[in-house]
Amino acid sequence: MAGDIRFKGQGIFSYRRPSKDDPEEWPPRFWKFTITLEDTNDHSSPRVTMGFTDKRRLARVRLVNSALTDPPISELGFDPLKNMPKLQDFSELILKRRCPVKALLLDQSFSAGVGNWIADEVLYQSRIHPNQYANTLSKEQINMLHDKLVYVCQTAVDVNAEASLFPDSWLFHYRWGKGNKNGTFMPNGEQIIFETVGGRTSAIVPSVQILVQENAGSSSTSGRSVKKAELQKRNVTAGELIRKVRSK
Rank of each mutant, 00 (worst) to 15 (best):
G3L: 02
G3Y: 01
Q10Y: 11
R17T: 14
P18Y: 13
P18W: 09
E25T: 12
R29E: 09
R29S: 08
T40G: 13
S45D: 13
R47Y: 09
R47Q: 15
V48L: 12
V48S: 05
G51P: 06
K55T: 08
R57M: 02
A67D: 08
A67F: 02
I73G: 02
F78V: 05
P80H: 03
P85A: 10
Q88V: 12
S91L: 01
S91Q: 14
L93G: 02
I94D: 05
A103Q: 04
L104H: 05
A112T: 03
V114A: 02
L123G: 03
L123D: 05
Y124T: 08
Y124E: 08
S126C: 10
N135Y: 06
T136G: 03
Q141L: 01
I142A: 00
L149W: 03
V150E: 14
C153E: 12
C153P: 10
T155A: 12
A156R: 05
D158M: 07
S164D: 15
L165F: 07
P167H: 06
L171Y: 07
T184P: 06
I192T: 03
T196S: 11
V197N: 06
G199H: 10
G199P: 08
S202D: 04
V205M: 00
P206Y: 05
Q209V: 03
E214C: 06
G217N: 13
K228S: 13
G239Y: 05
